[in-house]
């Protein structure tokens, strides 16, 4: 479903590449975790997959099409298939929860429908938002202002938005970095369960080895922009120090 080949990203004015010759393949329904310290290039990798980062070399195939070659409407169609859950701060805090959740549908909505929904949401649309929120366990927050929710609740709103999007690939960039252990486990098991049910290719970056080992099919290790196979926490710790 997602195939990355020899991806190299170098930011301007930087001597060393942020990502070096990275290759990954994630199949439908497969759950892959990426572990790596801060600054190892995880966020850059995720932004590159969505086509937001200028790349030096490589190919990123999303459902058979290269997103790096896509422009305009074609790029938007490809992005529609990729659900993104970032480390918070990517919701519009002023808007109500249902606006943020249904923003996931913007890729398939017409402009007039998008504008109408802002001022005049229909029952069916609100129900769709409610169903998504039920799956993440906060259906009662449907009409709340997003900024008034706690960090964990906002994270779940972001997941609900990704659900509404009905993607074929899900990218989760440290989705539990700022959550407590119980909630972290809950959110990760939820993500993995959803990915399994809808046969979504899930790529998720994490800090915690134990969580990665418990919930994911495969674990990769990213350090200094180089991706390698994961060799267990003890070995990783030894190389890091």
């Amino acid at each position: 479903m997602l195939l990355i080949q020899n991806l190299t990203v170098r930011y301007r004015r930087k001597a060393t590449a942020t990502l070096r010759e990275v290759s990954i393949s994630v199949g439908a329904g497969e759950r892959v975790a990426i572990i790596g310290p801060s600054g190892s290039g995880k966020t850059t990798l995720f932004r590159a997959i969505s086509g937001f980062v200028p790349t030096e070399t490589g190919r990123i195939m999303v459902a058979g099409a290269d997103i790096l070659q896509a422009r305009g409407g074609q790029l938007r169609t490809l992005r529609r298939g990729i659900g993104v859950i970032a480390q918070q701060h990517d919701l519009i805090e002023r808007m109500r929860v249902y606006h943020n959740v249904m923003a996931g549908a913007l890729g398939r909505w017409s402009t007039t429908r998008a504008l109408r929904f802002l001022f005049w949401p229909l029952c069916g649309e609100l129900d769709e938002a409610r169903v998504a929120l039920e799956r993440v366990g906060i259906a009662e927050k449907l009409r709340a202002r997003t900024g008034e929710l706690s960090g964990g609740q906002q994270q779940r709103v972001a997941i609900a938005r990704a659900l509404v999007q009905q993607p074929v690939i899900m990218l989760a960039d440290e989705p539990v970095a700022s959550l407590d252990p119980d909630l972290s486990q809950h959110i990760l098991s939820l993500l993995c369960q959803l990915a399994g049910e809808a046969r979504i290719a899930l790529l998720c970056s994490l800090h915690q080895h134990d969580l990665a080992e418990r919930y994911f099919d495969r674990i990769l290790h990213l350090q200094g922009g180089v991706l390698s196979d994961y060799a267990g926490p003890a070995v990783q710790f030894a190389t890091a120090s």
């Binding site: 938007r76 490809l78 992005r79 993104v84 002023r94 808007m95 923003a103 549908a105 909505w109 504008l115």
Partner: peptide, 29 residues
Amino acid sequence: DWRPIEALRSVGATRLMVAFYGLLPMTLT
């Protein structure tokens, strides 16, 4: 803030939708 904007674009929203769902509500005050 570019992060919510990028989140909307990564959903596949058009520029006009990004303006109404992101730029305007974020800067309304």
